[in-house]
Structures are given as C-alpha cells and as structure tokens.
Design a protein around this nucleic acid. Sequence first.
DNA 1: AAACATTGTTTCCTTCAGAAATTAACAGCC
DNA 2: GGCTGTTAATTTCTGAAGGAAACAATGTTT
Lengths: 387, 387
Amino acid sequence: MFAMVNVVSAAVQVFAAVLRHGPISRVEVTARTGLSPAAVTKAVRPLVDAGYLVERPDDRAPARLGRPAMPLHVVAERAYFLGVKLTADEVIAVRTDLCGVTREAVHRPLTSTAVADVIEVVADVCRGLAVGHDVACLGVSLSGDVLRDTGMVRFSPFLNWRDVPLADLVSAATGLPTLIENDVRALTVAEHWFGAGVGVSSFALVTAGTGIGCGLVVNDVLLPAGELGHVAIDVDGPECYCGGRGCVEALAADRVVLAGCSAVVGRQLTMAEAISLGRSGDPAVHAVFERAGRALGLALAAVANLVGPERIVLTGEAVGGYDLYADQIRQALAAQAFGAAAACELVVRPLPFDEWARGAAVVGIQDLITRSGAARGSTGAVTLPAR
Amino acid sequence: MFAMVNVVSAAVQVFAAVLRHGPISRVEVTARTGLSPAAVTKAVRPLVDAGYLVERPDDRAPARLGRPAMPLHVVAERAYFLGVKLTADEVIAVRTDLCGVTREAVHRPLTSTAVADVIEVVADVCRGLAVGHDVACLGVSLSGDVLRDTGMVRFSPFLNWRDVPLADLVSAATGLPTLIENDVRALTVAEHWFGAGVGVSSFALVTAGTGIGCGLVVNDVLLPAGELGHVAIDVDGPECYCGGRGCVEALAADRVVLAGCSAVVGRQLTMAEAISLGRSGDPAVHAVFERAGRALGLALAAVANLVGPERIVLTGEAVGGYDLYADQIRQALAAQAFGAAAACELVVRPLPFDEWARGAAVVGIQDLITRSGAARGSTGAVTLPAR
DNA sequence: AAACATTGTTTCCTTCAGAAATTAACAGCC
DNA sequence: GGCTGTTAATTTCTGAAGGAAACAATGTTT
C-alpha cells in the first residue's frame, strides 16, 4: 500500500534539479532537494565523471563575499532523445538533447493508418533523425487510451487502432528503447519539467482543438487520467459522439465552433475566416466564440475545483483565436472556481505540433532520469551511473 | 521537487498492512509491502514488544503443508482515539480503538457557534469519552476550508468561522494532541483505510446531502481538493449561492430537491414526505428526484473522467431516498464516463453521522501510524517505537 | 522416521545519507 | 601582503535501514 512510493535516489534528485532549474550551484541543489551538502557532493561526482554534468564558472556573476559558487550545467549533448507524435495523417518527429531542447524536427505525411505502415514510416523518420547521434531513447505519443507501463495502445480513435503493442513494435523496428504515452499527457510532462509548469508540484494542462484534452500532475506525479473532453457541463446540451450529452468537447471543440460560425453566416467557413470575422466584429460569429469560451472556462473551473492544481496551462490549436473568447474563459473560470480553487493560476500558451513531439521525447528523458526503466526494448542497463 | 516523496519506514508499512488487511502472517505482509522477509521480521518485533501487535494462531485454519503461519493481530485496545464532527447545531463525538472501531459515541447539541462556546462543549464531551482510557490523539472534522497542516480553519460557512486556529485551541482545552481536517476528507480517509476503499490506491468518496462533497485519494494520498459541489454541470442552470451557475449543489442538494418537490405539490414538504410521495409513484415528485439523480450522476462522471478513481463511494443523508434516483445516477454515470473511466466502480453506502466522527478519529490513527506527526499539541514524541 | 513444504529468523553485508570538522576560494581591510 | 570574515564544497566518520542467503522451526505426507 505504501509500496508504490517512489524512493528517488540522490543522484536522480540532483540531476533533475540541475536539469529543471540549472545552472545552479551545489548549495542551491541542496536547498531544492532537501539533501545534505555531503549527499549532493557525493551524487555530483559520478554524474560529472560520466559526462552528464559539468562545472562552469559564471563569468558575469556579481562579485560576492565568500567562496564563489560553481554552477553545475547539464551537458546537453551527452545524450539525445527522439520524440514522435502520431496524428491520423502525419508523423511529427524531433530530436532533442538531454536538456529537452529540440535540435531537429521532421514532418512526414501518413498515407495509411495501418499499423505496419505507420511503424515503417516512424522507423524511417527515426533512422534519419538518429544518424550520427547517440540516441538514448525514443518516445511516441498519440491520442487515445495509451498504457505507458505495458507499451500497449488500448484504443486510438483517430488511427482506429485497438490493442496494439506499439512500444514493442516500434522498438523492434528502430532498435531503440521505446516508450509510449498519451499525447496530452506527454505534453503535460514536458511543460511540467521544462515549460510553464516548472516550480509547481501540482499542475494541469488543457488542450483545446480537435478535441479537448487534459493532463494532470499531482504531487509531481502524472496521473493516468484527465478525460476532460467528455465531462458534461450542460445537462441538456447537444449529443456527443461519445454517447454522452453536453460534453465539453461537444461545446468547445474546433469543429463545433466552426460549424456554429458557418451556420450563423450561412456558408462553410475555414477556421481562419471564422477568426477573422469574429475579430472584425461580426456579433453573431463573436457570440459563437463566446459560447465556446464559456464552456472552456467551466471546464477549467471543473479542473480547478476538483483537482486543485496550482497552475493550469491552456493550449491547443484553438488558442489561435484566443483573444475572441479570453474574457469568457477567465470570467467563467473566476465565477465558478470555489474556495481555494480560486487561487489557481491560468497561463495561456500556444504550443505548436513540434512541441507535442518534444513532449514525447521528454517522456523518454524523464524515464532515463528517474530510471523507472519502463522503456520497451531497453537492455535494462542503468544509464545514469550510480557510482 | 522529489523532496516531498514520503519515505515510509518499514515499521509503518508493516503496521498499516496488518491494520488494513489483518490478521495476516508475516509472509503476507511481505507480499503486500514488497519488503523482504527479514525486514518484516525486524519490524514486527518492536511492534509486538510495544504491545501494538500480537501473534495469535488461527485455530480454524485448514491444515496445510509447511510450517503453519502465525497471523499477526493489531491490539485494538493498545490505544484509543477520539473523533469529533462539528455541525452548526451539534457535536458528534466517538471514541475508537486502534483498529478504528467505534467503542463509544456521544451527541451533544450546540446552542452557540461562537468559537469559545464550541471549544468548551468539545472539551467537555472529550473529557467524558476519554476518562479511564488511554487516548492517543483527537481528530476534529468540520465542513469548510480546513488546513490540516497548520491546524487552521480558514473558513467554515456553517459555523461562520474565519481563520480560527482550531487545532491549537482544542488541544489547549483538552490537553490532547489534536488534528483537524475537512469533514468529507476525514470520512474519505476512513473509508479508504477501513471501509469500502480498502484495497484500491485511487479512490473517491462523494457525499450528497445538505451540500455535495467529495474526497479524493490518488496513489494512496489524500488530495487537498475535491470541490465537487461547485462544479458546473449546466451552463444555463440556476444561480448558486457561491456566485456560480448550474453547480451540482444547486441541482442536487437536499434543499433543492425538497424545494422542487414542494413546488410541484404546492405545499411545504418534509424530506420524509417527499421520499414517501416519490415512492408511492407521484410522477411529478418522482421527476424531481430523477433530475437530481441525473445531476449527481454527471457529477460522479466528472470525477471518474477527470481523476479516474478505481472506485467511487456515494454516501450522504440523501442516500436515504436513493432508490428514487438510483437508475438516473447509474445511467448518467454510465453514459458520460469515457474510456477507462467507465471501469470505475460505484458503491453506494449509507454512512450515519457517527461515521463522520469516526472519520475524524481515523485521521488521528493515520497520523499516529504514518508519523507525519502533524498533531497540534503533541509532545513530538514518536509513539510507534522504531527500536 | 525420513522427506518435504512453508514460515520465520539470523547473520552478514551493502547502500545511503547526515553531522560535523575541514579545506577552498574569494572580498575587504589594515 | 597578510589577516579576517564569509560562503562553497569536501572529507571522514557514523548510524540507520533493509536485502541476500543460509538456517531454524514446525508442521504434513509417505
């Protein structure tokens, strides 16, 4: 019952601290981790020896009293990670360094969603990205019911996959240790470690676009949950493809907004046209955006009330026309957030598709760092040296 | 960042395992905790020496091969705990043993909600319950914004308290180490350890009654969140006293149902009358219940979708007329639970007020066991011997 | 009685991290 | 330049904690 409490070794804590907050001195690591100075010193040495960390003095540091601090830097080039985001018609792949910075990105169209065909494209893209670089791990993300632990895709609506052992297949095709994760959750993890979620231990990311997704981090742990898209916020709302009614997704997804705008205008619009019409002041179009904004605001409020994150990041393709419903979102959130939930901070961030692929890569980084070692196809060798 | 990971000592793990799953043999403790047999043996001895555990052979065990197991039992009488639940007009208090079993219960009316008056009643009741028994700890629960860590009540609407250092006050008045917690969360903790939540690590408890409350346990940790009552499930719903609109509480709270029934009948009803009318088949009254049931079902679905507990316990005063809207609840939950959330199990349990007081006591038990040692007024002495 | 299966214990060992003393590397000051 | 004060980092020692594996205990089965 307490067995699943992860006891994180000092080396991992130290490295993660430098990675997320670095460059920082050992003293600062001490403060951030709660470890003793001795433990930090001892943990740092093997990390330096193995080439993961380096000491580099800060030239521009103001002269202060006492022995100058020696900042620790992560050696970004020590290892590379591939991240792949699958959509119904495209493979987006990136290579990041150990610091989670994207070094190379590739987009490749998908002409078939058959498992074997997708695997082949993925493998080909990965070969291209990996060549000449020391790639430690590959992360693949896609929407749907994805089980990281077992490497299985239970169901992916866009690809129409059921029970596909994706991690094993990709690992076999690429020769790389492979991890899979739900796409929104992967993005959440990346934002938590390297983006707007740095510094908080309880954090939510909401994506609005084709679907409405949500990733949740509580006590620094990613939850295998967050199905915000089909939370109902209107008992008498329109039917949703999921069989429910009044789902957030049925009220605020891109296609719903677009359909609404097209209806009031009387002709089929593109999203760009709809946004432009809304901005130029067409009241009926604007009202459609406002309705969606209210729905999104209520959805965010549900997250704030129920889960109580310190911060919520709102992102997604729909953020493009954000100015059209920003007020509604914030109003609905403020009106509906109760008690302590009202302290929840809302950050809006556009995150392009490359970032989603990067999210998949960060899943790999995290796995390497924390050594949960769940990557399929890995040799089981510990990559961060303990000694 | 990983600093808050609780490293739970072997002794605590062992004791908690026996407490929650006992009587069990050392081997079974080994299996449940993931500890080595050696560690279990070593952890058990001081617990037996200190009188917390005893070995007692199982007479009725079927004869099996090998050395017979020696089941470990918790010595229920080794320590007692007081639990107090505060409402606007009553103090409910219980004394439980170490196993969380209620040994004695007392109800006492409150004639004033002034802090000093309430403290006095609580102290008096506790004196009566404690006399002649070795009471380790006192837990107090009440609705509202309660901070266990600091012992402060930030806001309690029913008592109309703001920023009351309740734990310190009660501790001073009773002389007992005192913990406070939100009432729903206390009940959640109790159900998780001793009730319908045993065996799952992710668990939610929803109470329907005067208000709609929710407690969440994720990865065996209680979240300081769960404001389900003011999650909106109807954009155009009625205004709620919280300033929001379409809140679950504004659609499914007792008073709302009662007001609805009274309205359709044309005279002021009591809840008992309303339930009786509904059962006898009055279609209009029945419809009111059904509407509330649908709202509750959607609320449960929101919890299932967003947080993904393995099990949800539904309880509260309103469960009294449960048969009147059971169908609606289950239907709405089933219709709206998406993907993995559909696997969530719903358990309906009536939990009388005594159980709420017991919940407060269990908070104390948990605190003792896990030695978070947050109890106000405690001497800081470790109660479970490590050596 | 011998073989066997299972539970529980002991001994030894490794790992890990903290306490506290110590060393390192500066700035300021006379 | 040498002293002092200050902060950073390291070293050495120590203790806690739990795992591996051999071993003891206690029954059943044959």
